[in-house]
Design a binder for these strands. Sequence first.
DNA 1: AGCACGCCGACT
DNA 2: GTCGGCGTGCTC
Length: 813
Amino acid sequence: MNDFRDNLIEVAVCMPAGGSFTYGMPAGQTLRTGMRVLVPFGRQRTTGYVLGPGSAPPEKDVKPILAVLDESPLFPAAMIPLFRWTSEYYKYPLGAVIQTALPGGLTLSEAARWTLTPEGRARLLTQNRLDPAEARILKLLAEKGLRPRELRARLGPDDPYSVVGALERRGDVRIVKTLRAGGAKALQERWVRMGSGEPAAAALSPKKRALLEIVAAAGALPVGDLAERMPNAGIHLRGLERSGHVDIFARRLYRDPFGEAIHPDAPPELTVDQRTAVGAVGAALGQGFRAFLLKGVTGSGKTEVYMRVASQAMASGTSVVVLVPEIALITQTERRFRARFGDDVAVLHSGLSEGERFDQWTRILRREVRIAIGARSAVFAPFSDVGAMIVDEEHDGSYKQEGGLHYSARDLAVVRAQQCGAVALLGSATPSLQSYHNVRSGKYTELTLPTRIEARPLPEVRTVDLRRCRDLRGPGKFISAELNRALADTLRRGEQALLFLNRRGFASFPVCAACGATLRCRHCDISLTLHREANAYRCHYCGFSLPGSASCGACGSKQIKRLGMGTEKVEAAVRALFPEARVARMDRDTTGRKGDFLRLLKGLREKTIDILVGTQMVTQGHDFPGITLVGIVCADLSLSFPDFRAGERTFQLLSQVAGRAGRGDRPGQVILQTYHPEHFSIRTARDQDFDAFYRQEIEFRKALGYPPITRLVQLRLSGRDARRVREQAEALGAQCQTLRTADSAFVESIQILGPIEAPLARIAGQFRWQILVKSPQTGCLHRFVDRLLAARPPGLAQKRVRMIVDVDPLFLM
DNA sequence: AGCACGCCGACT
DNA sequence: GTCGGCGTGCTC
């Protein structure tokens, strides 16, 4: 069976430079769109993905597919348009896009490595006619060989790589190419059942008779279960299999990614607003593409709307993708979907092992589920019949993937809905400026849930001007009298408090008391943070660390002032102020191990924690019903970032934290400490007034020509050699200018900012420069970048300067 | 990515 | 004269 009439197949190859190529049919094999194949590519072999029938390229020999790697497709043909769109829009090779979309561990790639021949091995032993350089190389390769680039790296400057060539000519070393397979596979479990044929007549031992009875009673059961019930069951079982009493067979096993049991729930009565929202989206289902933005304060019941929409989409025979932000552990939304829809839900998030992800992927492919829920990569869930794409907390930064394929899952969700004629439903209490702008321009339909369910009041937010505490010493400098009093009241009432600070560690700005120099990272342009618990100064960008006893790098003094604050310092202050309170801290340092996070959540739920100090980790995805006081220790940290979105991020963060207060049956209050009480991001967050924030922020974006008024593409250059990176950045900048002036459409629409040194000029030893390309017209912007990339900047790729193209960048650092 | 092709400096 | 350095371009 075959999808292809003639013998030409279009294959996307997994290569940095590859798009799709035409190959010939392998003889006598079943081949279908969505399968992986092994293809020759240049002088090597690589994994490719079958996209469909191919067309012969002119005057070019077509090579045959070497092997078919799957028995059934890994993705439906319906997803190929999404892959192509992603590849073109984000300037990333098609094969690599597909590789990113699929669960990991599925790519076969050919690895060439230098290895010793038997002659080489003998020569290394006898040292016969072997000079020191040759001996060093043979020794390096003796164990299991090295990839060419690894060998080059190990060889250092005085051992020329050419010696390897000489050794090869002499027959001592050679290149061996091996295919490295990914590890993900379906898991098989051995099961046993009664034999189907006539068993050989023989006397059975009591043990064997007992075993047979268990099997007969169960019908079929895993061999592992038998082994638990009876020691040495395996041996007896083998005998029984030989004599034909039982059959042993393999059964597909699905790893269970769900740690805890979840109890089914029943749909509650909808509020009037919820009913209106569900009605509007429901009416649009099956009527072609429509996008909705559901704006609802925290606690207003957005998840219930998602679930009703999902349920309606499923009722009409379509599938649903639900995206949730990437956070530690499973989100509340995920948990509630599983409580409502049970086995109809597949989950795809980073907490799963490679094998678990593969299993969930397979369940979707086999149409065993109708809902896929997960973090950003779930946007590629392999449904062929999507009816609704739902994005929860659509403003969340974690939808943007940094590294590899730089994509926004939120934006791709809308594109996918558009391609499938489905409904896109984006929800947030604090929508992104981009999405709300789409409402204003008529692209999205706005739906609102203006009140909390059960008419719970929004928390009262008070701002405290930290400038009045500036000259105080000790904890009073950052725990104001107001916050102190509110904490005391909360504790007295037996309620819980949350203290939020968007920075971990104890002191973020260690300064030498003698000479005034700061302790800085050796590899990055940033000061180190003191982590008192770990007794170390750490760099939050590259992981570099110094012992807590380190002295000033400039003058050698041991006297280091611990300026700047982090969650550790807040925790210490709170413990000092309220010695009787039970204080816990939640940040990346305290949730390193699996289970830490759950333990903290449990502590909150069971009221064994009175005060929780945490970073933005506490703002996401979880309800803390007992918390009635939220203290924002310093609201300004995210405001000072050199990024045009700093105000937007601050507004979102503060609103989200504030929303954590009073989600149970008692009202909440929020104390917001700031050095900039008059800043509009902080004022509007205090008033929980998104519309006011939007009106002012959009004016600012208009004035400066930033998104969502324009679109951006960022070109990022990095490398170890500062001079080379700067030179390449300048050359690329010049090339941008030339390209721009060559076309009047570009002159009119394209603006080029830079090249400039990145705000963080060095991270992990990499010097960084950037160029921003800006245009109000998406089409023109992409044409420009495509032309720029086609005329690949000379020398850039090979000069040990790396270029990353980030379309719609979210963080400009 | 890897590999070949092609053009310039230091050696037999 | 050639060997080998790296910069450039291609892979169905």
